[in-house]
Design a protein around this nucleic acid. Structure first.
Lengths: 349, 349
DNA sequence: ACTTAGCACTCGAGAAAGCTGAGTGCCAAT
DNA sequence: ATTGGCACTCAGCTTTCTCGAGTGCTAAGT
């Protein structure tokens, strides 16, 4: 955090080299190993000097005195910033992604498969949230169906194709005719309204007509009160795939357990993503060290981006993985899928 | 497997005692430990004799020569069979279950919460499948909405409240009027038909009218061909919760990884459950040793039951856990939830 | 005939001790 | 500035040792 100290060219090169070899080997990297595998051959001793400086500046740490150096979160942040972002996705990955996602029938399926593909490519945990809030959507169609007594099935379709159904428990029994009338009324009068403004308007109209007793309005009021038109949690669906990958990474059992159960609590995942991702910006965001939001997630990285169609944010695509991760690869994959998402839904919605 | 050898009363008692202490301690149980904690005090030596017999009969195994005995799958099967099944759920669990499930809005939510609760109670993995196949359901209502060109959103509602939506890609562009006509036609002519017989009937009618060119029928044929009325995978939803519990149980990392990724492949979970559970019988089924279906699942137990409403099977409720598991507790919980499920949906559907 | 005490034997788990080698820091030389 | 050299550190592996829970068997007791 705070002020990342400035760094010369040589330092920078060595630091990247360290980060890269640590990512690939997983073991603390020593001056010797570096000296051998480095293009411009410097001696181990020189490298040691630089490493000492980098350690002072907070980029490296020693697990114990006589071990190699390990990159700190700060080092990863530096490393990521320094990436050019010009990498292309490998053809293999590209066809893997295309093959998986192309045939998705709907948003949910797209998201689920995305999680899966991301987990495969990144060797981390693929996480997607489809948070399509109904709020800004236009109502297109409602349909009510009487189930048992006092139970009504409400189906709401928005203009952009979001379908939400729920079973309402009414206070009293509404006959089928009333339900049909209510649906017809809403479909005629409110088609095209945004879901949000719609609630106020309904409340208003119900208010107005209250004086004279109107069965239709009473029905609508009741349906409305039971949440017939609520679309909240509609798309708040979370897909987490690839948890198995954590087993390889995480050594500590207790932590592993915590991680898994955290990932199972959908709400916390949503919180996590929205804490870091719900910005306006388009680029893929890389957050190294999630410990300030989730205590157990130190040593973990979030690589994600909002999933948008045009200007509207429909959810998030992300990978949660160990700091030791192929950043460039994962970043390009995430960004590729984000573009694909936009294109795909633009043409299909 | 094969013929479970017969067993006298004393043997039986000792075997249960062994199974129980092994379940609670997790360590191979020796004759000494047993002798101490056994009500009718037999000496260690006598117990040793019995244990030797039990070992010969295939109920016990020794991890190595000078260790205690560990129950085999056969022993667990015996143990389970011998349980009275009269145990009552503890009030704490009962209120936990009630509290979690009562407020479920729909089938999906009920299933998801059930998985969660089961994982909490059993310390295993809670698994539920809602496999409501549309096939035997009666069609109640369809609705088509034109999205982009050549894209149509189809929403199908069945009589028992299952809602299925999917985006169809048409070969040619259908105008809104045609879509509405098609929906109206289907709603008028096919309301109340079972989804399965419906497909044949539509095919038949389309065939009949083929001679004269009928736009309506052409539209319907196309919609149908694109799967507008398919309800397959509709309720084929799998909920797996409590995977974190496996971390405690499973020592071997590689196996743990396999387990987790198996559980993530929904299809395999469905296969597993349907292999053992889709019987007509009502009771909770306990399957010890799943290795014949899933190689990695030796040492694991499936405790589950079909979830039925009246006579119709709506899915499955199950726990997958280590052989070392509180059987009685879990069995009663599963069966309790199964009853709850029946009652709950009987009154609400 | 069943039960029990005693005894010799086995063998995994855990502690203690020793060794190894990758790695560091610093100094003196280039 | 860079490099070679040297003394020092220390995690982790291997080896060895001890300990104790457990077994099987035999002989004695009921």
């Amino acid at each position: 955090m705070s002020t990342p100290p400035k760094i010369g060219k040589r330092e920078s090169e060595i630091l990247t080299a360290i980060v890269e070899t640590y990512i690939s080997t997983g073991e603390p990297v020593g001056s010797r190993t570096l000296a051998r595998s480095n293009r411009e051959s410097l001696s181990a001793a020189s490298i040691r000097n630089v490493m000492a400086d980098l350690a002072d500046a907070g980029f490296l740490e020693q697990p114990h005195t006589s071990a190699g150096r390990v990159p700190t979160a700060q080092a990863y942040r530096f490393y990521v910033k320094q990436l050019t972002g010009e990498a292309r996705l490998s053809p293999a990955d590209e066809s893997l992604i295309q093959g998986s996602l192309q045939s998705s029938q709907d948003l949910q399926e797209f998201m689920e498969r995305t999680s899966h593909v991301l987990s495969l490519i990144s060797h981390g945990v693929g996480v997607t949230v489809s948070s399509a809030r109904g709020g800004r959507n236009a109502l297109e169609h409602v349909y009510f169906q009487r189930m048992a007594d006092k139970k009504v099935l409400a189906v709401v379709v928005t203009r952009n194709g979001l379908v939400r159904d729920r079973v309402l428990r009414m206070n009293c029994d509404l006959p089928i005719a009333d339900l049909e009338a209510a649906a017809a009324y809403i479909n005629q009068n409110f088609r095209g309204w945004e879901m949000e403004s719609l609630r106020n308007e309904i409340a208003k109209r119900v208010q107005q007509e209250r004086s004279e007793y109107d069965r239709l309005m009473a029905s609508i009021e009741q349906l409305y009160a039971q949440g017939a038109l609520a679309t909240e949690g509609a798309g708040q669906t979370v897909y987490v795939e690839g948890a198995a990958n954590l087993v390889i990474t995480e050594q500590d059992k207790e932590r592993l357990r915590h991680l898994l159960s955290t990932l199972e609590e959908k709400q916390r995942v949503v919180d996590l993503l929205s804490a870091y991702l719900d910005t306006r910006q388009e680029a893929v965001r890389v957050v190294v060290g999630l410990e300030d939001t989730m205590p157990h997630l130190n040593n973990f990285v979030l690589i994600g981006t909002p999933a948008r169609v045009g200007d509207e944010v429909m959810g998030s695509l992300a990978v949660i993985g160990p700091t030791r991760m192929d950043y460039e690869h994962t970043i390009t994959a995430v960004s590729y899928i984000a573009r694909l998402f936009d294109r795909y839904w633009n043409e299909s919605t």
